[in-house]
Nucleic acid binder design. Structure first.
Lengths: 247, 247
DNA sequence: CGACAATTTGATCTGTCTCAACTATGGTGG
DNA sequence: CCACCATAGTTGAGACAGATCAAATTGTCG
């Protein structure tokens, strides 16, 4: 079951922590309630009573909030293996919504089971807390991105983040990655208007930093893009890749 | 010891969770290393190796990051009883800095002790996780604030948040609260320029929504301000006050 | 081929920034 | 007690990044 919920969660956690065989067994034993969510449909809605956590198994999801007048702000993007509302375990109601940006496969896990898992295994509990902590770190970087960067570095930073996270999960070769967002959705993620996103993407292409074919994006010069985007991957708190450890 | 580190932490946690006597005993037994931090000095610095958590005992603190060119973004504000880097327990290095906005009294607690506390008491572990989860929720609201609100509601929202959080800790009467920030610091918190903050504050005063005397701010019409600021306290996940429970 | 969604382009408008000067305000030392 | 200095707040003028509106173009897929 290479693409199962279990496998995705294990892969995700192994990008940020070290798991034992016992941990993997515990994860395999979790009760996953699978569901396919169509593109642009909500996975969970703001205000809903919280009884389950969700795990993104396939596709791209986002968290978002609506401000006055229906202006949408996307808060984070989620790749397979992410548990966007892990912290919801401690909360009573959703304070935001989760939506499928592409057709998604989602696994719902009852809070009860997650709590049992956490109580049963300190090391797994720790890995999950680390997952949630990194989630918080990514929020902090997004605040900085939206608050203090111009359009070009702001969008560039978003691309760098998704690229780096994709690579950490083995979802990318060295230069390309998939980002299934329309320009209007990129606008919602960066706090810009769709028109300005369009023009800024043209600028990024014009500077030979990125190129796109459909939803597949290629970073033509990783170093250069990271420089103009003011990107430093430290905030993702990724484990050094295996290769680096062996050198 | 009414203003001790222990008392502040207890008060904070009781605004969001229910503690047992045993929990309070456990907190009292924590080893606090007290320190006074002068205004505008860092409590912890980005990049530092993480070995302790910090607890704000007195004063106002903030977390911040620097973007290219030294542009500062304030990520969150912290009142007495807050543990800003609680999630740092799971991380290796600070991904942001913490600074005293007013003269602060800070208690440092070794990670070891926090871990022992969490392992020893499920209910306290739960309250602390809830504290961290609400911290995350506040980040999400800030992203929305900076990304999708105009200057006037954006600053109004900041005021509503600090006011509501102060009240939950018993630090405010029904209308006034203390916010020890210069206009330049409000600018850093909202992603605006200091000049525009000045003009927007004048607009807020002109609309008879707020008035200020030094660092004491009064909300002249709470409902009206919350309306124009697009503020809904749900994201703070506060417990209903005792009075409401008895009605 | 038709229809709908997404991207692109042009023109114009505006919120916010920048720069620079001026005015409180409050603390310090002579 | 006053003169001084630094810090914070205020004001004006001009520039600009990015928003808005509207229309044209290019996909994309049944």
């Amino acid at each position: 079951m290479p693409n199962s919920a279990q496998a995705q969660l294990v892969r995700q956690l192994e990008s940020i922590a070290t798991l034992t065989d016992e941990d993997r067994t515990q994860i395999a034993a979790l009760p996953f309630h699978m569901k396919n969510v169509a593109q642009r449909h909500d996975v969970m809605q703001q205000g809903a009573k919280l009884t389950v956590c969700c795990l993104i198994v396939r596709g791209l999801a986002c968290r978002y909030k609506l401000a006055h007048g229906g202006r949408r702000q996307i808060l984070s993007l989620h790749l397979p293996g992410d548990m966007p509302d892990l912290q919801g375990l401690e909360l009573d109601y959703m304070d935001h919504s989760i939506q499928a940006m592409s057709p998604c496969e989602v696994a719902y896990i009852p809070h009860q089971s997650m709590e049992a898992l956490i109580l049963g295994s300190p090391s797994l509990s720790r890995a999950l807390r680390r997952h949630a902590a990194i989630d918080g770190s990514i929020f902090r970087e997004w605040i900085t991105n939206v608050g203090r960067r111009d359009a070009l570095p702001r969008i560039g930073h978003l691309f760098c983040e998704v690229f780096t996270r994709s690579r950490a999960l083995g979802l990318s070769d060295g230069r390309s990655f998939t980002l299934n967002l329309t320009q209007a959705e990129i606008a919602d993620a960066t706090g810009l208007s769709a028109v300005h996103v369009n023009r800024t993407l043209q600028a990024l292409r014009g500077q030979h930093l990125i190129s796109s074919r459909g939803s597949t994006h290629t970073i033509l010069n990783v170093e250069a893009l990271e420089r103009v985007a003011d990107f430093d991957a430290a905030y993702l708190h990724l484990l050094p890749p295996r290769a680096a450890l062996m050198s």
